[in-house]
């Protein structure tokens, strides 16, 4: 591996090259004091360089096979962990079914669709549903809602939370017949208190929020879902340098993925649609281009099929491509009224 990939500042890299250290292997057997003399820098700086070099080297050798790599996890452990972690329900049984039980933690899920199909509704619903207490089969977490479009309506969140409380008290009555548990009855206000709302007004702020999230989450425990509504808005307006856009977007995607993994939470990105010209005709496709479509783990497309709203799994490493109907009612996202059972296999 070349020295150019090393995470050191430009002057130090220049010094390294001029002193003849052009590859990582040439750094592997040199002592800090020798290096400091060759580069004419302090010994502490030389130690820093060697640290960075050994860090790079370790990643390089990771294909060695027998060595157990630091930070890795076996597939068996991952399976076990996945079984233990709960998913966030969408309040629509069919949708949950095709999603394998709901929105998964430690994954980035992108949801896109035409205007008015219910993206924001689904976002608010998830922000409320993540708070269903553990006793009721939920996660008992908190939600971060990052609003870039200004389409979040507090009144609507209240409506959805009220409907949720109603549903829960029904369940509560049902459970009480068997056990004397669950005296924690949540009020709609409690739901609203646990949604942290960020209003973002430019792409710089969007990046800033995402950078800051890790710290924010460490200060506020139990955040289980981060919803960005929509990830697209600021990147679609007023952006001349498309290369910069791609760079910023991929940086953002990486940070979100890291966050999802590290803090064990679900990241839900809402995306808009755009028209794409291919094969001599216009198609609708999710916005932000082809390189962005690699950024998320799961991709769900919402669309109209006749008179019904449908969700379609467009991309997922573990779920099959199926579609399922859902509906948006006064109470929030619910099962489709006309067919409750049928799921069409594509």
């Amino acid at each position: 591996m070349e020295i150019c990939g090393l995470a050191v500042s430009a002057t130090q890299r220049g010094k390294l090259i001029s002193a003849g250290y052009t590859s990582l292997s040439s750094l592997s057997s040199v002592s800090p004091s020798d290096l400091a003399r060759d580069l004419q820098t302090s010994e502490s700086q030389a130690t820093e360089i060697l640290k960075a070099a050994s860090h790079c080297g370790r990643l390089d050798k990771s294909d060695g096979g027998h060595a157990i790599v630091a930070g890795a996890q076996t597939a068996w452990d991952m399976l076990h962990e996945e079984d233990l972690s709960r998913r966030i329900t969408t309040s629509c049984a069919d949708l949950d079914k095709i999603l394998g039980g709901g929105i998964a933690c430690k994954e980035v899920t992108e949801i896109g669709g035409v205007p008015g199909i219910g993206k924001t509704q689904l976002g608010i619903q998830l922000a409320v549903n993540v708070q269903i207490p553990v006793d009721f089969g939920g996660l008992g977490g908190k939600a971060i809602y990052i609003d870039t479009e200004g389409s979040f309506m507090a009144e609507r969140a209240l409506q959805i939370a009220e409907a949720r409380v109603e549903d829960m008290s029904e369940y509560h009555d049902f459970v009480r017949k068997n056990f004397q548990v669950c005296q924690v009855q949540m009020q709609p206000q409690d739901f609203l208190k646990n949604i942290f709302y960020f209003r973002v007004c430019s792409y710089t702020e969007q990046i800033a929020v995402i950078n800051y999230l890790e710290k924010f989450i460490s200060e506020h425990n139990d955040v289980k879902v981060v919803i960005i509504d929509s990830v697209t808005f600021h990147f679609r307006q007023d952006f001349e340098d498309m290369a910069l856009r791609t760079r910023l977007l991929s940086g953002m995607a990486l940070k979100l993925m890291k966050l999802a993994n590290k803090c064990r939470l679900a990241v839900v990105l809402l995306n808009q649609v755009t028209t794409k010209y291919s094969d001599g005709s216009f198609h609708l496709t999710l916005a932000l281009g082809d390189s962005w479509s690699h950024a998320c783990t799961n991709r769900v497309i919402l669309y109209w099929n006749g008179n019904e709203r449908y969700a379609y799994i467009d991309k997922s490493p573990s779920l099959r491509s199926t579609s399922a109907p859902y509906s948006v009612t006064g109470k929030g996202v619910r099962d489709s009224a006309s067919n409750s059972k049928r799921i069409k296999m594509m």
Binding site: E48, A157, Q189, N194, Y197, C201, E205, V209
Partner: peptide, 27 residues
């Protein structure tokens, strides 16, 4: 160096980040 850049970016991000509100306060 990387460490300085990281801490600077973190600080800039924290300051540039808009303040949050809970939805109940918003309402």
């Amino acid at each position: 160096g990387l460490a300085e850049v990281k801490s600077a970016v973190a600080q800039v991000s924290e300051i540039a980040c808009p303040a949050y509100q809970t939805v109940s306060i918003l309402l």
